[in-house]
Design a protein around this nucleic acid. Structure first.
Length: 160
DNA sequence: GCCAACGTTGGC
DNA sequence: GCCAACGTTGGC
């Protein structure tokens, strides 16, 4: 199943991912139980990911990635120096999970959120639901394909 | 920077 | 177990 992962580009952008060793990173800092359950139970090796930039202007889809390691304990949770430190977590009780993702394709430019709202296929997409804040979201195959198709149409996919 | 929507906390 | 208060998210 495809997924959508949100990141604030000021914190970690798709360019940061592109510059990472092997264009791969661990997806740490998720501190929401519903999102945690997706990371732990549902994300599978090889699943594709829409990399979404949130809290920026405009917000939108920045590219795609794939899951290259399935859920494992998020060790930043018991690192006191981490921004994502959680006093309730420990090595023996990790609470939080993360996955590793590898960059697949960075769009040449952001696919802006308002453009997604114009696509009929995406009408029920979790991202577009009013009040939706989930930072790890399942995406249907049809939705994933529709986003890529729109990126094509807007000329945001340079390499082939 | 505003504020609506949501999740979490904690008193009862 | 309810629910008010609070903190956070994230589009605008």
């Amino acid at each position: 199943m495809p997924w959508l992962l949100k990141s604030e580009p000021d914190c970690f952008s798709i360019l940061d991912l592109a510059k990472s060793p092997k264009r791969t990173t661990f997806w740490d800092g998720v501190r929401n139980y519903q999102a945690r359950n997706f990371l732990r139970d549902s994300m599978k090796l090889g699943d594709r990911v829409l990399f979404y930039h949130s809290s920026c202007d405009p917000a939108g889809v920045a590219g795609t990635a794939t899951i290259v390691r399935e859920g494992y304990p998020d060790f930043t949770a018991w690192d006191k120096k981490s921004d994502h430190f959680d006093p309730k977590a420990s090595e023996s009780n990790p609470i939080w999970q993360m996955v590793d993702i590898q960059l697949e394709e960075a769009f040449t430019d952001l696919l802006p959120l308002p453009a997604l709202r114009d696509v009929p296929t995406l009408k029920n997409m979790e991202l577009l639901r009013k009040g939706s804040r989930l930072s790890v979201q399942p995406v249907t195959d049809a939705e994933f394909a529709a986003v890529l198709k729109l990126a094509d149409k807007l000329g945001l996919r340079a390499k082939r």
